[in-house]
């Protein structure tokens, strides 16, 4: 799964989620597994809207947390990779035959 900085990400539309105790709780209905996101994961989750890439999400992280752009991008890509492997997020399908 590519987490290249330019790929746009969206939440998996098949999921249910809520914020409880300042953490994001996500239920995947197919297996009833409960996933929990920490502070940074919750911040990213709130901002994943199908219109932002890892690079753009990392910029938001830099603006909200005391973190350098390099580390923000690295952390964002790691979290997206983790969330993608759990099928919590999916890349937005490319239109016009090419990825942005």
């Amino acid at each position: 799964m590519s987490t290249a900085p330019s790929v746009l990400w969206q939440k998996n539309p098949a999921l249910a989620w809520r914020e409880i105790d300042e953490e994001t709780v996500i239920i995947s209905p197919n297996d009833s597994v409960m996933h929990e996101l920490n502070d940074t994961g919750s911040f990213l989750w709130k901002n994943i809207d199908g219109k932002k890439s890892a690079a753009e999400l990392a910029e938001l992280l830099v603006a909200s947390y005391e973190v350098t752009p390099d580390i923000a991008l690295s952390d964002t890509q790691s979290l997206l990779e983790e969330m993608s492997s759990r099928k919590l997020v999916v890349p937005v399908p490319a239109t016009g035959g090419e990825l942005r």
């Binding site: 539309p13 098949a14 249910a16 197919n30």
Partner: peptide
């Protein structure tokens, strides 16, 4: 396994 029903449950 339907998403909306699970959202309501949550």
């Amino acid at each position: 396994a339907e998403a909306e029903a699970n959202r309501r449950l949550l």
